[in-house]
Design a protein around this nucleic acid. Sequence first.
DNA 1: TGACGAAGCTAACGGTGTTAGCCAATGTAG
DNA 2: CTACATTGGCTAACACCGTTAGCTTCGTCA
Lengths: 174, 174
Amino acid sequence: MADPLSTRAREIATVARDVLEREGPDALTMRRIAEVMGIRAPSLYKHVPGKDALEVAITIAGFEEAAAGFEAATDGAADPLAAFVGAYRAFARRHPHVYRLMTDRPLPRADLPPGLEERTAAPLQRATGSPARARAAWAFIHGMVLLELTHRFPEDGVTEQAWQVGIAAMQREA
Amino acid sequence: MADPLSTRAREIATVARDVLEREGPDALTMRRIAEVMGIRAPSLYKHVPGKDALEVAITIAGFEEAAAGFEAATDGAADPLAAFVGAYRAFARRHPHVYRLMTDRPLPRADLPPGLEERTAAPLQRATGSPARARAAWAFIHGMVLLELTHRFPEDGVTEQAWQVGIAAMQREA
DNA sequence: TGACGAAGCTAACGGTGTTAGCCAATGTAG
DNA sequence: CTACATTGGCTAACACCGTTAGCTTCGTCA
C-alpha cells in the first residue's frame, strides 16, 4: 500500500496540502487540486491511487513536522511539559485543517512510516514520565485545541486560565 | 431560521437520527432517509429545508438527552465530578456518531433553543466550581472520549489509568 | 524507423444535495 | 355538491463529487 511516491506524486501531495490549508477541507477535491496544477482531475490518477492516498500523505507530512517541532521545543527545556503544550498548540493553530485531518479519523497506521507515531508521542511521554499521565495530558491538550478550533469557548480570558489550570494540574500530577 | 418543525418534519428528523446512529455518517443521506421512510428524497424538502436542518435537529436532540443525563447523574451525587465523567462518557459511547456530529463543527447557536447550551454545561460548572476549571475538565473529558472513539490509544488498561489520573488531577484542582 | 511507456486528455458512471415542475388526493368555501 | 386551493407525493434534472475507460500525444531507445 505504501509505495514510495514518485516525484510527480509528491508534487501533487504538496499542492493538496496547500489547497487544504488555504481553502479548507471542502475545497480539497481532486478537481481543485488538478486545477491548481493546470491539469485535469483524471490525470492525477496516473500518479496517485486516489484521494485517500493524498490524505495519508498530508497526514504523514503533518506528523513529521509536528514531531520535529515537539522535539525542538522540549529538547533541553527547563519545563518540558509547558514547552510541549506550547509547541502542540502552535502547530494546531498554524495548520488547523491539517490538524483536523490528522486527528479526526483513525490513524492509517498501515501506511505510516514505521516509528513515526511513536516518535511524535515520545516528547510528551518524556515530559510526563508515565504512559497513563501522557495519555491524560494528551487528551487535555487535544480537547482544548479542538474546543478552541470549533469555537466552543466564549472568546474571553477564561480559556487562557483553563490552559494554565490544566497545565498546573498535570505538573502536580507529574 | 428555527421554525418549529412540523409533525412530519419531526418524524424525518427521528429517522435521520436512527440512520446516523445505526449506519454511520456516510449513510446519513437524503436518499437513504427517504428510503427508510418509503418515499423519495425530493419529497423530504416539502417538510425540511435541507440536510443541514436535520443535522441541527439531531444535534439539539442530542444535547437535550445529554443535558438530562448529566443532571440526573450529578444531582445529589456524593462525587459530582466523577458522576459527570461517567455520564458524559456513557453518552458518547452510546451515541458515538451523534456525539461527533454535536462536537465536530461549530455549534449552530442561532438555531439552538435558548438556554440549552448553558443547561448542558451547568452540571460540570457546578461540579468544578469555576469556569476555568470547567473548561479544563471538559477539554480533558472531550479529548479522552475522542481519542477513544478514533482508536488513538492502544486498547490496554493504561487508558483506564489515564481516566483515573485525569479525574484525580481535577479533583485536587477543585 | 518503429515500438513503447509516460502522462496528458475527454467522456462517462454512480453517488451526493437540491430545484423545478407535475399530479393526485384532500379539505374547505360557496 | 361543486369548485378551488393546499398538501405531499412524484420524476427529471442540475452541478458537484471520486473514479474508470479509453484515446492521444510525446519522448526515448533499440
